[in-house]
Amino acid sequence: MRDLDRAMLVDTRAASPGAVAEAAHRRPRRDVRPDGRLMLIAADHPARGSLGVGDRPLAMASRVELLDRLLVALSRPGVDGVLATPDVLEDLLLLGALDGKLVIGSMNRGGIPGTAFEFDDRFTAYDAASIEDMGFDGGKMLLRIDPTDPATARTLEGCAHAVTDLAARGRLAMVEPFWVRRDEDGARRNDLSPEAMMRAVAIAQGLGATSAYTWLKVPVVADMERVMEASTLPALLLGGDPSTAPEEIYADWAKALRLPTVRGLVVGRALLYPPDDDVAAAVDTAVGLL
């Protein structure tokens, strides 16, 4: 990012904080594509302290570099919008990068990796009212279901309220479900088996007073055809492990995108921090799969 742009962001935030809301209210909006195929860039990892990409533990620590990469990604043909937390979206608003884009606000980022409360995914960012006030198009929530952790009940309740509140405002509710298992050493991990994902999807789609505005955000796992038979809701594929060879990730996406309920991609680190650092080429390849 040019020094002038960085200085503009800092100066504006310090002297004219109301400029964020003003930029949001004058932002040209758009509708979901008529065919429902979407390409969204995800950038909500830093809000949970998840700064690593592959073997680079602090790859996302530089906000200036992250914004630079987001500006490149959002400028590419076929990219429909972005999913991020308020801090990132407000920088992009001030930079004019969200004009005509779909904007999804990330809502519950309270489960910080490496902490005692890692799986307590409380709502610490957007709520439905603030998403509507900003003129954004929807909200995304993480739903990790640990059958051994009572805090899961609070997450379920919070997500259910968010789905209901977003739907009442005509906003998309994007739910990212995982079933959690405990290994022999007590460590908790997302269970990516087909059976676990089917169970997580079944629970996620039943949240809230209506599912009319609910979309799912799901990983690509084994036996994806059977997993997606668990739902009639539209789904977006989330990005793969950035340490995996890009060709393998793209092949997995291409196969899953042929399934009738899969309507596109929402990808962050795998496209923003590709091994060769060519963001434009990585994004263009992903768009070409749709």
Rank of each mutant, 00 (worst) to 15 (best):
R2S: 12
A84Q: 08
L172V: 15
G206F: 01
E22L: 14
E22N: 07
A7H: 12
D183I: 00
K101Y: 15
A61G: 07
L257V: 12
L207D: 09
L271T: 02
A47P: 07
A209C: 09
T232C: 02
A202W: 03
G105V: 13
E195C: 09
Y273H: 04
P234L: 06
G100N: 15
A202N: 09
G100L: 13
T152N: 03
G105W: 08
T210S: 15
F119G: 01
R69G: 00
E90R: 09
T261Y: 12
A61V: 05
P219K: 03
A151F: 04
R30I: 12
R27D: 06
A73T: 07
W179S: 07
S62T: 04
G96M: 07
D137C: 02
M198T: 03
L236S: 13
D121G: 00
P246K: 03
L92A: 12
G139A: 10
R263L: 06
Y273G: 01
V88T: 15
L58H: 11
G135R: 00
R30T: 15
D121M: 09
G186I: 01
A84W: 12
A116N: 02
A167M: 10
V287M: 04
W215I: 09
D165E: 14
P77L: 09
T214P: 14
D121H: 10
V20L: 05
M8K: 02
G288V: 05
A230V: 07
V64S: 02
G105Q: 09
A204W: 07
R188T: 07
L4P: 00
S106R: 06
L83M: 15
R171G: 04
E229G: 15
A270N: 14
A196V: 02
V287S: 01
F117D: 01
V32H: 08
P147Q: 09
I131M: 04
L236G: 12
R76P: 00
A282V: 00
A212C: 04
V266D: 15
D149T: 04
L98K: 11
D183H: 13
G36C: 05
G268E: 10
G208N: 08
D91H: 09
A160L: 10
